[in-house]
Amino acid sequence: MWHKIITKINRIVENITALLLALMVLAVFVQIVSRALFNMSFPWTEELARYLMIWVTFLGASFAFQYGAHISIEAFVSRLKQQWSQILHVIVAIVCTAFFFILIVKGIEMMDRSMIQRSAALGIPMGYVYSVIPISGCLMILNLIDVTMKALKQPEQTDSTKKGIEGVE
């Protein structure tokens, strides 16, 4: 049940991220065409592309956990016994959760403080731009829990199984 919920959430976030990425490309394209054809540029396209890039980066980082796309040191962990590997995985998950919790708290503070400030070209409250920070922090915690649960449920691997897995990657 838990895994299905996380998978559904990640699918929604992936689709939103893809849409935002497409909008960002479109904004940059409009900027390029307006400069090339009309010798003028729209100030809002650069700002929109920048804010969409922020959203794409934070949202993409949140579902990247499911694909193992974040930097890790597998060479060290794969040499450990299963028990020590799981203990290390839990320790890393606790440290990451603490960081994500700080990201959520400070992101909410930043979002609240900047709601009165408006962006230069679009005129939107900057708090909306910064709201992705606590949103992605929550999503990262959920994905970290899911990945950690999967890692702890893995059966013990023999040395030949580990070599087979390393050979595939």
Rank of each mutant, 00 (worst) to 15 (best):
W2E: 11
K4Q: 13
K4G: 07
K4L: 14
I6C: 08
I6R: 07
I6Q: 10
T7R: 15
T7F: 09
K8M: 15
I9D: 04
I9R: 02
R11F: 12
V13E: 07
E14V: 11
N15Y: 15
I16P: 05
T17R: 08
A18S: 11
L20Q: 01
L23I: 07
M24N: 12
V25T: 11
V25N: 02
L26F: 15
A27L: 10
V28G: 03
F29R: 06
V30F: 12
Q31W: 04
I32W: 07
I32E: 00
R35V: 07
R35L: 03
A36G: 13
F38P: 05
N39Y: 15
M40Y: 15
M40A: 15
S41F: 05
F42D: 15
P43D: 07
P43I: 11
T45L: 10
E46Q: 12
E47Y: 02
E47H: 01
L48I: 11
A49P: 09
A49G: 00
R50E: 12
L52W: 04
M53A: 15
I54H: 06
L59M: 06
F63G: 00
F63A: 03
F63T: 07
F63N: 07
F63V: 07
A64T: 01
F65Q: 10
Q66I: 06
Q66Y: 01
Y67F: 12
G68K: 00
A69Y: 05
H70I: 01
S72K: 09
I73H: 02
I73P: 02
I73C: 05
A75K: 07
F76E: 03
R79H: 12
R79L: 13
K81F: 08
Q82S: 14
I87R: 06
L88Y: 02
H89F: 10
H89M: 13
V90G: 00
I91E: 03
I91W: 02
V92W: 04
A93D: 00
I94V: 14
A98T: 09
F99S: 04
F99C: 11
F100M: 04
F101G: 09
L103G: 04
L103A: 07
I104S: 00
V105F: 04
G107Y: 06
G107R: 01
I108D: 00
I108R: 01
I108M: 10
M111L: 02
M111C: 04
D112I: 15
R113Q: 11
R118N: 11
A120G: 07
L122D: 02
L122R: 11
G123A: 09
P125L: 07
M126F: 13
G127C: 05
G127Q: 04
Y128C: 02
S131I: 07
S131W: 08
S131P: 01
V132D: 05
I133D: 03
P134Y: 02
P134D: 06
P134I: 02
S136Y: 06
C138P: 04
L139E: 00
L142I: 09
N143M: 01
L144Q: 05
I145F: 02
T148K: 00
T148F: 03
T148S: 10
M149R: 10
K150W: 12
Q154G: 03
P155H: 11
E156S: 14
Q157Y: 10
D159N: 13
S160R: 14
K163W: 08
G164E: 14
G164F: 04
E166L: 14
V168A: 13
V168N: 09
V168C: 08
E169L: 14
